[in-house]
Design a protein around this nucleic acid. Structure first.
Lengths: 210, 210
DNA sequence: CCCATTGTTGACCGATTGTTTAGAAACCAC
DNA sequence: GTGGTTTCTAAACAATCGGTCAACAATGGG
């Protein structure tokens, strides 16, 4: 009943993400967006709203496509340690195959103080909460099965003066793994992939049987 | 012989750092700088050069004052594991006492694609190299003394099929610790200090005797 | 005191920022 | 085709960007 769009919005959203990813929010101008997305200035406003709204849509797309796919192993069936190992393997694989130095789009965005839109900030906080919950879920399973006892030598030992509650222990391990995740993508963002791969070797051994 | 400056350059540099720290490079305008530093636009140019040069000076000041002080325990005498524990303690103490969510100025800057000045980027790379070298130094000492064998269960076991060279092992451990550092300051930057403190408990136990 | 030297000031530059407007062009149901 | 609706295009908007200028103020050695 009316004129259809001359472009694929999702494709343009992807291109916008790549641009924001490697330049940051403030350093990416409307001119840059119009040129690389190859659509008119006003068409951009008409389909995505203003710059902040566009950025929010980009963040949501990233969460669905990239983050959601990566978390599939953690949010799937309760496989304990195996799902953890699978997740870190997929994470490092993704970081290794990045052409330029980028790291994680969401981490970069949140650490970049330039993005002040509260909608964006709370959205990303929610994503990290989702990651922590997924980690915690599989950690609980793995701890119950005794798969990752090597990670917490004294906490798991019954000789501890005050035995730590299982819930507290699981949260400590989950937060420890959350730190590993942030560490990996930070190193990747800093261009230190070799060091990241080295560190993965150590983590793998910690998670391995003995 | 001439008119003296009406302000303390180092103090202004500090104020500029705080501004860049929580807003990012691109999001901090000359107007912002002039207003919060409370000096005239041209005086700023006259003493620090243009915006990029000012930022570079800020980075160098941060390395000297903040980073240098933090690394003192690692670059001091060869205390092995003790210096490592001391460093992480000081790091977390610093992150904990940060009022707002900031993380590390250098990490934020490098992950923020907005800073494209190559002088700044290589400078920060050098700082992280310095950190890695300092970690590696103390790790070698600690490994030789057998202080941190709990960190690498199978790699240190003589039963390994192909025994890992000491140099490789030390580098793996150093990179692992470098990842912990980046993970801690990333979590702090994301506003997840509770999780960071939780993770520190696990790391402390890994480094502890048993 | 004088004067060379340096810091300070506010106005100003062209360029670019994000955003909006008015009108032409393209589509589909009828 | 035509009507009604939506996209597209080019131009322009006010505001702000980083950076510069000449004139004035302040200093201390002579």
């Amino acid at each position: 009943m009316a004129r259809p769009l001359a472009f694929d919005p999702d494709e343009k959203l992807h291109q916008a993400m790549m641009l924001f990813w490697q330049r940051g929010y403030e350093a990416t101008s409307l001119k840059d967006l119009v040129e690389t997305l190859d659509i008119n200035r006003f068409s951009l406003y008409n389909t995505f709203g203003d710059k902040q709204s566009l950025f929010l849509k980009v963040v949501e797309r990233y969460e669905q496509k990239v983050f959601g796919h990566l978390l599939s192993s953690l949010e799937g069936p309760e496989q304990g340690r195996d799902s953890l190992l699978q997740y870190f393997g997929a994470l490092l694989a993704g970081l290794n195959e990045q052409s330029g130095v980028r790291g994680c789009f969401l981490q970069n965005t949140l650490l970049d103080g330039g993005v002040r839109d509260p909608r964006v900030r709370v959205r990303i906080q929610q994503v990290f909460s989702r990651l922590r919950a997924a980690l915690l879920h599989q950690v609980k399973v793995a701890l119950q099965r005794g798969e990752i006892d090597g990670l917490l030598p004294s906490m798991t030992s019954s000789a501890a003066p005050t035995p730590t509650p299982a819930e507290t222990r699981a949260e400590a391990v989950a937060d420890y793994l959350l730190l590993q995740v942030q560490g990996f993508i930070a190193l990747a963002g800093l261009g230190l992939m070799m060091q990241a791969n080295n560190a993965l070797l150590v983590l793998r051994q910690q998670l391995a049987d003995d």
